[in-house]
Amino acid sequence: MPEVVVDLALDSDLEWCARLMAESDPWLTLGRGFETCLARCRGPEFHVLMARESGQPLGFLLLHPTGVAGSPYIAAIATSASVRGRGIGSMLLDAAEQWIPAARHIFLCVSSFNTRARQLYERRGYTQAGEFPDYVIQGASEILMHKRLVRP
């Protein structure tokens, strides 16, 4: 079985990332179209980490190195529908958690309706740090989650 590798995305990967976002939840429900997603992926403040197998993209993670109180913030994570359940999301989270070696904490937000993602984050040690009701869309909250990173 080919190895999955996580590394920095190339500029040529960003349209693929934006298309994946725009065509899947939570971004569909949040009303984020392709152009908005592409602008986010191209943001110079972000590191875009890409999971690939045999050179083919499987998923990505958008990381702001100092997004919450100077700690890394995961702004987006997505995997292709065909590889969900294979651990690609966990690989991307592992990479993000190790990307800034001096970081002691990491944060992310998850939409209240995105229960599957929230379960993944909780299994991986993230806990709720706050809630923003009606933050993006009426009737849904954005849940701020935090994980303390253990460093050797």
Rank of each mutant, 00 (worst) to 15 (best):
W99S: 10
A51P: 00
A51D: 04
T79H: 01
Y73P: 00
A75I: 03
I74M: 02
L62F: 03
L58V: 04
L62G: 07
G59P: 01
Y73E: 09
P72E: 09
E53L: 06
I77P: 00
A51V: 01
A102C: 14
T66D: 06
P101G: 13
G59W: 00
A69M: 11
A78S: 14
A102P: 12
V68D: 06
P57Q: 10
P101A: 11
A95I: 03
R86E: 12
R86N: 07
I74G: 03
Q98V: 14
V68L: 09
S54E: 14
L62P: 01
P65R: 05
L58H: 02
S90G: 15
I88A: 03
G87A: 06
S90I: 08
A51H: 06
I77W: 01
S80H: 14
L58G: 04
A95C: 12
A102D: 15
R52V: 05
G67W: 12
L92G: 11
F60Y: 10
L61I: 09
L62E: 09
F60K: 03
G59Q: 02
P65D: 07
Q56H: 07
S54Y: 05
M91T: 03
G89W: 08
E97M: 15
A96Q: 07
G87E: 05
E53Y: 06
L58R: 01
G87I: 01
R52D: 04
P101R: 14
I88L: 09
I100N: 12
G59I: 02
W99P: 09
G59A: 04
G55N: 05
P72V: 11
I77Q: 05
P72S: 07
F60S: 01
A96T: 04
A76L: 08
W99E: 13
S80I: 02
M50Q: 05
T66M: 05
Q98C: 15
R86S: 14
E97H: 12
L93Y: 04
I74N: 00
M91R: 10
P72Y: 11
H64N: 10
A75M: 10
Q56L: 07
P65M: 08
S80T: 09
G70K: 03
I77E: 01
L61D: 04
E53P: 00
Q98W: 15
I74Y: 00
S82R: 15
V83R: 06
P101S: 13
V83S: 07
G70L: 09
M50I: 03
G67S: 05
G87S: 07
W99Y: 15
L62D: 07
L63R: 00
I88F: 03
G59C: 02
G87P: 03
S80G: 09
L63K: 00
L92K: 04
I74R: 00
L92A: 12
D94M: 13
T66Q: 10
H64E: 09
A75E: 15
P57T: 04
T66V: 07
F60W: 04
A51G: 03
R84Y: 02
S80L: 06
P72N: 10
L58A: 04
A69Q: 10
P101K: 10
T66K: 06
A96N: 06
I88W: 02
D94T: 15
A95T: 07
S90K: 14
G87L: 08
P57W: 06
A96G: 09
A95K: 06
S54A: 11
S80W: 05
A69H: 11
H64S: 08
A81N: 06
A102I: 12
L58N: 03
L62V: 12
Q98G: 15
S80K: 10
